[in-house]
């Protein structure tokens, strides 16, 4: 019967979904579990599935480093980079989506291609520029580099979302007397809000987890959570318990934030934002 066939297909798809989800989620789960193990349990092979949870590692992590300082730096840098990138990307994506030229597609591709360059390829010039502009180890400096590296993706995503907004609605705004500024802020942005929200979330996550520039351009004052984690992988030997606890602490805020806004993210990533 087609009914039972469909039921079987649904169960199969559901199972595959769960397997993939667990596959992706497993490292995070393992990290969280390891954070609650003693260092002995953490390195034992085969790993202990059952163990006495302890907050030992967390105590040590908090004693060794100023978690809140790193978190504050990360939040500040991520919000600045995301806000700045959106401010630049909205007009760019607006122009490309609604006033395309023959070269718009090429421009978009070219912008994205800058993401294909390995960051280490430009490490020296960027480092030197940052040093001579006194932006080394500043939140502003790290924010600017994050802003610039994420800009192509953000323009691209906004472009895709703006493309879905029916042009006559913007034209109706123009007929109603909206200036260009009002057309964007009062008509376009509210319509593309789900897309903008998911773009912003993606940018926040990228900034939050960015480690290469964080480790190379900051040392203490402006160091974000990536540096916080790195400080626990010291040359004296790895302490997996502490490392896991630190990592858990580092990803927890963005994970929770992402969790609460996941609805927007899923909507945005499936590109079905504006109907």
């Amino acid at each position: 019967m087609t009914g039972s066939k469909r039921k079987f297909a649904r169960i199969a798809i559901g199972t595959i979904g769960w397997v993939v989800a667990l596959w992706i989620f497993f490292p995070i789960l393992w990290m969280v579990l390891t954070g609650f193990k003693s260092e002995m349990d953490a390195i034992s092979t085969p790993p202990h599935l059952f163990f006495t949870p302890t907050l030992e590692s967390y105590h040590e992590v908090f004693a060794q480093a100023d978690y809140w300082h790193f978190t504050f730096n990360t939040v500040l840098m991520s919000v600045f980079a995301t806000g700045g990138a959106l401010a630049l990307a909205v007009p760019a994506a607006y122009a490309m989506a609604f006033y395309p030229t023959r070269r718009t597609r090429t421009t978009l591709l070219w912008m994205l291609s800058t993401r294909m360059l390995p960051p280490v390829g430009v490490l020296v010039p960027v480092y030197l520029i940052a040093r001579s502009t006194h932006l080394l180890d500043t939140t502003l400096g790290l924010g600017i580099i994050n802003l610039l590296t994420n800009l192509p993706i953000i323009v691209w995503m906004l472009y895709t979302f703006f493309k879905e907004v029916p042009v006559p609605i913007l034209e109706a705004g123009r007929m109603d007397g909206a200036s260009r500024w009002q057309e964007i802020t009062v008509v376009l942005l509210p319509l593309a809000l789900p897309g903008i929200a998911s773009t912003a979330l993606l940018s926040l996550i990228l900034c939050w987890n960015e480690a290469f520039w964080a480790l190379n351009l900051t040392s203490s004052r402006a160091a974000p959570l990536a540096a916080f984690i790195a400080s626990f992988s010291s040359p004296e030997g790895l302490f997996f318990g502490k490392l896991s606890a630190a990592s858990t602490l580092a990803v927890a805020p963005i994970l929770l934030f992402g969790w609460f806004s996941q609805k927007q993210l899923v909507r945005g990533l499936t590109f079905g934002a504006v109907k």
């Binding site: 006559p168 609605i169 109706a172 319509l191 809000l193 504006v274």
Partner: peptide
């Protein structure tokens, strides 16, 4: 004033 084929109402 213009009336569009797709109505072009502000959905929000």
């Amino acid at each position: 004033a213009m009336v569009f084929q797709s109505y072009a109402l502000y959905p929000h």
